[in-house]
């Protein structure tokens, strides 16, 4: 895997325009408008900006998930460990039919299903509730082991974490175990937006690879590059995709 130099292949983000619930299918260029329903015109949380391309590529090109059967045992699992800045996640889920577009307008209200951190018991298709950092990857390891114990070799498990989140020691526990057990169905995407206070000398990917993972880095805004990286599945080793992003573009 190499760092892709090409920028996103879907063009510039469009300005806000009123949304109509009756106008699917939604494209990547609709996402800013969907996010604006939650945040207001022109406002974008940096943490949402850093993940929007990754989430779109996952749901548009990679994940085998179906909003009409969110509990299908043969589905791929996506665990958003980095639960901060979830408006991009909600926008993608809405664009893909998991939640009604109109629900976005209720973002963070008392009776809304959409809060500042996702809740799996409220939102269809959301695999885990997240917010406190360092929980998603250990759970993803358990999900992968659960699939293995069920004899389900087809589904893949994707977990998205942040580079700052990687500071949490629980991730290192999970990285070590997944590597030693050779969990080939597991792919971790690390959003590298330089939010880690002390940095990662030697690079983030090397921390995984020394534990028996395969993987490398990719431009986190390049859809073709992300797709190519996320399609790779090493049958014998878990995969890490370190996605370099610019949070405040």
């Amino acid at each position: 895997m190499v760092v892709q130099k090409e920028r996103r292949d879907s063009g510039k983000l469009l300005p806000f325009r009123p949304m109509s619930p009756a106008s699917p299918p939604w494209s990547f260029n609709d996402l800013p408008n969907l996010m604006a329903l939650m945040l207001g015109d022109g406002k974008h949380a940096p943490s949402a900006d850093s993940t929007i391309d990754i989430l779109w590529v996952l749901y548009d090109r990679i994940l085998r998930v179906n909003p009409d059967a969110p509990d299908d045992p043969l589905r791929d699992r996506f665990l958003l460990s980095k639960g901060h800045g979830p408006v991009s996640f909600y926008a993608v889920l809405a664009a893909k039919g998991f939640i009604p577009i109109d629900e976005l307008r209720n973002f963070a209200q008392y009776e809304s299903i959409l809060g500042h951190h996702p809740d799996r018991l409220l939102i269809p298709g959301v695999e885990i509730s997240s917010g406190s950092l360092g929980h998603g990857l250990p759970i993803a390891v358990g999900v992968t082991l659960g699939l293995r114990a069920r004899g389900l070799d087809g589904p893949r498990v994707f977990c998205l974490i942040g580079d700052g989140e990687l500071d949490e020691g629980t991730n290192n526990e999970a990285i070590a175990l997944a590597g030693r057990l050779g969990l080939g169905a597991l792919t971790v995407i690390v959003v590298r937006n330089d939010s880690c206070y002390y940095g990662w000398p030697g690079g983030i990917a090397s921390r995984f690879i020394v534990e028996g993972w395969s993987g490398g880095e990719v431009d986190g805004h390049d859809h073709a590059g992300l797709e190519a990286a996320l399609l790779v599945r090493d049958p014998l080793r878990p995969t890490v995709v370190v996605a370099q992003t610019e949070a405040n573009r």
Partner: peptide, 16 residues
Amino acid sequence: REQLMVGVASGFAIEG
């Protein structure tokens, strides 16, 4: 790795 023990158990529980 006790935190992992619980996280992994959670993942198993998600899978039934």
